[in-house]
């Protein structure tokens, strides 16, 4: 009987090891998927930041700005850059 118990024990051990291995592997893949989705989210946010940086830069185009001010009949139109005071930030 003893060898049979040994065989059963070894089989159980192997089963447990296999189960743990599969469980850990699944967890690994699951965490990986989570990391990947965070990576994708970061990349999307990066692209969104870039997009807004560009949109802000585009909106600062002097020609376009003047055209819009002109269209709005604003008193701010055609202000020469020479008449704009630049306030430097304090060190």
């Amino acid at each position: 009987m003893v060898p049979i118990i040994r065989v059963v024990f070894i089989c159980l051990l192997l089963g447990v090891v296999g189960g743990v291995f599969v469980y850990l592997r699944n967890q690994h893949v699951q965490r990986g998927d989570e990391i990947r989705s965070v990576e994708i989210e970061i990349a999307e946010l990066d692209r969104e930041i870039q997009l807004w940086v560009l949109r802000i830069a585009n909106s600062k185009d002097r020609v376009e700005l003047n055209r819009r001010l002109d269209w709005q009949n604003s008193d701010l139109r055609s202000i020469s850059p020479a008449n704009i005071l630049k306030i430097e930030s304090s060190p």
Binding site: G32, D33, R36
Partner: peptide
Amino acid sequence: RQEIYAYR
């Protein structure tokens, strides 16, 4: 066809 990050 989605990446399996764990096997990168």
